[in-house]
Design a protein around this nucleic acid. Structure first.
Lengths: 210, 210
DNA sequence: TTGATTTTATCAAACATTTGTTTAAATTTG
DNA sequence: CAAATTTAAACAAATGTTTGATAAAATCAA
């Protein structure tokens, strides 16, 4: 299937609506209106609403694995530094694509679409495998003192902490003094705090001493 | 409004379906069928589908705050021990009410219903306030060395880690060797791991030395 | 306890909208 | 001119809610 600019435009609007109202809470008419195309164009371009979200996942998840593979395979970076880069990359990616990650979280909860489940499983497991490699490397070099490390729990702690922060931004604004902050400025603050916090979680979980 | 056994039964089935298929993905007919009552009974008992989920939240969130208040106000427990109890209580509560917490997470993402938003905000903020008190107490006693503690980030890290673990249990099963484990046994393993992990996060974030 | 009366609960059917998708004609593009 | 795109209209199915009739339960005077 060939993805044109029109596809991309519709997908982007659909993504916004899915993040805002959920998949079931978004109608094909909503998408058509938001994308400023005729209702029938959704079927014409994507076949169905279900195919549309599947194509959205295919589009968004392409090339995700490559970036962290480059880090893991780089010999000149020390294991813990690799993990720090992975953490920062993840935070950056979530904050740059908040809508998609919300859609992803919703899909992870509902587990209705087989195609999407496969995408996400593949994504998560390859991610975990790469991190596992780095942890093994760190252990071989004697950088990490803990020897009963649950990689997936550590990964889940990272994704859970970051995702939950994005999802509950409003509480954050209300509880702290950040009422006056602009959306982007709040994001900058949160990214910095998350980076420090998650790296700390890695540090203590792995038993890393600089 | 008086809640009868019939109400409770219907709410329980609705909760299951909302967790499984989302609020929009669950029809009133689905609920009626699952609860084995006539379709019209849902309107008769709750007024509407929206009122039903609001009443579900009201029911489930009652008395949540009380339990941790009892811990916080207990003078014979040391600050960090209080936090440990709070962590274990939270984990226990999520695992005992997985369906409701999934519904809650979905509602937190979508933020559509004003009544529910108020419930959740009140819940989260009172939770954060109580934890803040314990942290202040620990700082006064010189138990915690860190002085720039972001309570809400710490709380979000706990809820995010625990919730994400519940939501992505399937990945966990697949990645680790737990394929053979029964649902309940897996939960026991995860609860233990989470308890240790989250307490560690608290420890390192607060700068607690025993 | 009776039996009449009112209130509450249950039901199948119907209601008006909204849903995703298709059609067939019209328009634009190469 | 032929293929690809766009359109308004229509389609059947599904949606939340209401209706009006019936059954069951509760209330109460005798």
């Amino acid at each position: 299937m060939i993805i044109t600019d029109k596809h991309i435009h519709i997908l982007q609007k659909a993504e916004e609506l899915f993040a805002q109202n959920g998949y079931e809470g978004t109608t094909v008419r909503d998408i058509a209106t938001a994308a400023d195309v005729n209702l029938a164009m959704i079927s014409y371009y994507f076949g169905s609403k279900e195919k549309l979200i599947e194509i959205l996942f295919k589009e968004r998840m392409e090339g995700t694995k490559l970036r962290i593979e480059a880090v893991v395979n780089n010999q000149s970076i020390l294991p813990f530094q690799k993990l720090e880069i992975i953490v920062d990359q993840y935070i950056e990616r979530v904050f740059n694509s908040q809508n998609f990650f919300k859609v992803m979280l919703a899909q992870q909860m509902l587990q209705k679409n087989e195609v999407i489940i496969r995408f996400m499983t593949q994504y998560k497991l390859s991610y975990a495998t790469l991190i596992e490699e780095v942890i093994q490397e760190g252990r071989r070099l004697g950088h990490f003192s803990k020897d009963d490390i649950d990689t997936l729990l550590l990964l889940t702690s990272m994704t859970g902490t970051v995702m939950h922060t994005v999802v509950s931004k409003d509480y954050y604004r209300e509880f702290n003094k950040h009422n006056k902050l602009e959306e982007q400025d709040l994001d900058t603050v949160l990214k910095q705090k998350l980076s420090r916090h998650v790296k700390n979680i890695f540090k203590v979980t792995l038993g890393y001493e600089q």
